[in-house]
């Protein structure tokens, strides 16, 4: 039998128009579910991005509170001789305060009352390769500098992970729940619209329509609704991402959030594909189940 795409599309659009309220419900449901999924994707991408950029950090910092000038010079020389180390910079107490002031330039109340000496002097050890940070940290510990006085990426990553892992798990759980809810809601919406048209379907079957012929317009309907809901949600997610990145640049200057952490194109594709799959799958299954009953 010929597959008459034009006929099926026309039927689908006509059904959407005639059952407008039901279609709006289905589109809105898809929109909300895909939006939640998209926000989940955004958050996890940004966390990944932050972790990635911290990992790229090629420096280890040794804080040296209360250590004398000589000790600093000795360590500077020793560390400079290790092959993993590219360079060593000494940061004095005054320099540390200046850099702190620089970072929080817009929040003067943070540093107004700080004197030189509050922030310890330190050595900034630049590495040849970020992967070597752990081994250098180990050597420094062997030199008698404990964990608290060291700052190297692994620490930050561990701290980040301990905070964000709960958040990410929560988001995943929420996303899964929302996806299940959306599949149920959408298939329910479709079942309702099929139920409203059960007489029509019975008539179609009586005049000799095959199951496929009856089903195809419904599947196209699900496709169009899924595409619309997911498309709108995906665009909203992209827009939210721009807002967030913009906001973080102004308000979270010390957090390395980067717009590039989110691959806009792949987020779009993933969200739209999931939305369309829900629409198409939902209508296919509901119609098939209904057809089996008559």
């Amino acid at each position: 039998m010929r597959f008459n795409l034009g006929f099926f599309l026309a039927e689908a659009f006509k059904n959407i128009r005639l059952n407008l309220l039901m279609s709006i419900t289905a589109v809105t449901t898809t929109f909300i579910c895909i939006l939640v999924l998209g926000v989940g994707l955004l958050v996890s991408s940004h966390v990944e991005g932050i972790i990635g950029s911290v990992r790229e950090d090629v420096s280890v910092e040794v804080f040296m509170p209360g250590r004398g000038e000589e000790e600093m010079a000795a360590l500077e020389e020793k560390a400079g001789s290790w092959e993993e180390v590219a360079s060593v910079d000494r940061v004095s107490e005054d320099e540390a305060l200046a850099s702190f002031k620089d970072t929080f330039e817009e929040q003067p109340d943070l540093y107004e009352n700080l004197d030189s000496g509050v922030l310890p002097a330190s050595l900034q050890i630049q590495l040849t390769d970020p992967d070597l940070a752990n081994s250098v940290a180990g050597k420094l510990k062997a030199e008698g500098y404990d964990e608290e006085n060291l700052s190297y990426p692994q620490q930050t990553i561990e701290r980040l992970n301990s905070v964000t892992s709960y958040m990410i798990w929560g988001l995943y759980a929420a996303t899964i729940l929302f996806l299940i809810a959306s599949v149920l809601l959408i298939s329910n919406a479709i079942r309702l619209s099929i139920f409203a048209r059960r007489k029509e379907i019975e008539v179609m079957k009586l005049v000799g329509a095959t199951d496929g012929f009856v089903r195809t317009p419904f599947v196209f309907e699900g496709l169009i609704q899924g595409l619309l809901g997911a498309g709108l949600a995906a665009l909203t997610v992209i827009w939210l991402n721009f807002l967030f990145v913009d906001w973080s640049r102004q308000e979270l200057t010390f957090v390395p959030i980067d717009g590039d952490a989110v691959n806009t194109a792949s987020v779009l594709v993933i969200l739209v594909v999931v939305g369309v799959a829900i629409g198409v799958g939902g209508s296919f299954l509901s119609v098939t189940r209904f057809l089996r009953k008559i």
Partner: peptide
């Protein structure tokens, strides 16, 4: 027309 469309008749 629907009864003809289900049989895949040409437009």
């Amino acid at each position: 027309a629907y009864a003809m469309e289900v049989t895949g008749q040409r437009r």
